[in-house]
Amino acid sequence: MAEQKEPSFEHRVPEGDNRLRQVCTDCGFIAYENPKVVVGAVVTLGDKILLCRRAIQPRKGYWTLPAGFMELHESAETGAAREAFEEANARIEIDGLLAAYTIPRLSQVQLIYRAHLIDPQISAGTESLEVGLFDYVDIPWDELAFPSVRWALTQFNDVRDRKTFPAFTNPPGESGDH
């Protein structure tokens, strides 16, 4: 049986392109590197908001929304519901898109939904140290893991009583570049 040769890639600008890409030196295949999509939700039970204390890096020990990377072949809504279950054993129903954030420094797009618990039983999943339901005024603001968590919670509070609203984006002055 013939031995298969491992492909060899080099960084170069392919013909007709304007960016450095990983290009196979044998066949010209271009291995595009694209942003990662994060999906999550501001999940409520009545007036309370679900938060998860992270059991993993980055920002282990800090509070966050149930969220994570979208998987191949799933919708963003399905991914947000999966993340809520993985992180908080929470069964949720998505109400709509709350926000779409861009974080260029991390090459991320974050889609954050508004959702509610359909079963009040929650518990920490493998990526959470603990989970809790917080009144908005009792959120541990100084212990939030990421700026986008603060953005989502603040923007959620602005529209919590509205059925419809346009989806938010990064707040003014928050480009996500640093």
Rank of each mutant, 00 (worst) to 15 (best):
M1H: 15
E6W: 05
E10A: 12
H11P: 03
D26E: 13
F29A: 10
I30D: 07
P35W: 03
V38D: 05
V39N: 02
G40S: 01
V42N: 01
V42W: 00
L45D: 15
D47L: 00
L50W: 00
C52K: 02
R53K: 13
R54D: 06
R54W: 01
G61Y: 01
M70T: 07
E71A: 11
H73G: 03
A76D: 11
T78I: 06
F85A: 08
F85M: 13
A88V: 07
R91V: 04
D95P: 07
L97Q: 15
L98M: 14
A99R: 04
A100R: 15
P104Y: 01
P104N: 01
R105F: 13
Q108D: 11
V109H: 13
V109K: 08
Q110P: 06
L111M: 13
Y113P: 14
A115W: 00
H116C: 02
D119K: 03
A124T: 06
T126Q: 14
L133Q: 02
F134D: 03
V137C: 05
D138K: 02
D142G: 11
S148M: 12
S148D: 10
R150K: 13
R150W: 05
R150L: 09
L153F: 01
D158G: 09
D158P: 01
D158Y: 04
V159A: 02
R160S: 11
A167W: 15
S175Q: 07
G176V: 09
H178G: 12
